[in-house]
Write a protein that binds this DNA or RNA. Structure first.
Lengths: 198, 198
DNA sequence: ACCATAATCAAACACTTGTTCTATAATAAT
DNA sequence: ATTATTATAGAACAAGTGTTTGATTATGGT
């Protein structure tokens, strides 16, 4: 009973992480409030103090967006390039890793990886067979965004859509049909495309 | 005189990068102002608009710390990003350089530069408005390859074709017509495409 | 010298945002 | 049941912040 009702503290922390990932800044107390469904800013402050006590975040000064995620082990010098992902969340197991790419720190966070695109189902979105896409691992994707999903035990890149509240995976290529997954498994959000023409 | 006074635009961009790296958020206009040594917030706004026009940042809404660094700042080493190239071979003269990007060595060589794509004349080749293309400077391009050419004193990206031994510049977009240049000026060959989706 | 454009400033305004204080539910402990 | 603790709400304030407007000072071209 208590188990599946994720407690708000956790929700706050996750929201902050995700928000930071998307927006290059941490949320305001009011944004957090509305995200977790409480109406008072002081409630959020209450949570933040707790998270701070537990060492997850720190708050310095009174300027805006002053939450700082600790231990954010941001920045990784090398990110792996993965090929087809089979079954489950991508492990960085040797057999999956095509190679490594050195990257600049500030844009990339732990958990990011590059995925080699197979097939041309996204060609109208300018994502071609053989391209590399940068994937940020996150369970949250908004409709309209392009992401990596698990379908029948394999990773696939599609645009997320919504039809009557149900998720649709939209290939950007007239030759392919939308996919209506019974269960949506999100691996991550595609945030960049790299194509080597040589 | 002009040389050692690093221009403010660059300073702003660098400050934002650095600030983001340190603080997990982008700075406020006032913080930027004091960092680069100007006293007016509107001066900063002036710079931000410029940086936005050049595609380095985006600003959405009027909430606090709304600057967002675009830039698929992959990779090590620095190579210049050029905007429209006017007249002649691109010099790395200040006025041409939009900024710098850290890049990985193995993909990039001396003389390479990134060019910000204008327009959608190559969209069927998966090269969209706003993309960055990596250009290797070379006078030699083979038919079928995509390159950067000078047309009427401006740089343009097209696929090279051959008709009866005469060069044609082919836009990969049905809405545009091929160009039959009297004189073919090749700036370089496009060897990669980078698109930032965030 | 004159004009156009680019760069910068100062001030003011409205909206955001962090903080604090008090009050009230909900829950747990006694 | 009574009490203590935990969660949540609401309002209000001061400071922070983005934006705009108008003016002023370079700078560069003719």
């Amino acid at each position: 009973m208590d188990e599946n009702k994720k407690n708000n503290l956790q929700k706050v922390l996750e929201f902050i992480k995700d928000y930071l990932d998307r927006n290059q800044k941490t949320p305001t107390v009011r944004e957090i409030a509305s995200a977790i469904g409480v109406s008072s800013t002081s409630t959020v402050v209450y949570y933040l103090r707790k998270l701070e006590k537990k060492g997850f975040i720190s708050i310095e000064g009174k300027k805006s967006r002053n939450i700082k995620l600790k231990e954010t082990a941001f920045l990784r010098k090398q990110i792996p390039i993965l090929g087809l992902i089979r079954a489950g969340i991508p492990t960085y197991a040797e057999e999956n890793i095509e190679g490594y790419l050195n990257v600049d720190d500030f844009l990339f966070q732990k958990g990011d990886f590059l995925l080699r695109v197979k097939g041309d189902s996204m060609k109208d979105a300018g994502i071609f067979d053989g391209d590399l896409v940068l994937v940020k691992q996150t369970p949250v994707i908004n409709p309209g965004e392009i992401g990596v999903f698990m379908i029948d035990g394999e990773s696939t890149i599609k645009q997320l859509g919504l039809e009557n509240g149900h998720p649709v995976l939209i290939p950007k290529n007239r030759d392919y049909s939308p996919i209506y997954p019974k269960e949506l498994v999100v691996i991550g959000r595609v945030t960049a495309v790299i194509r080597d023409l040589d």
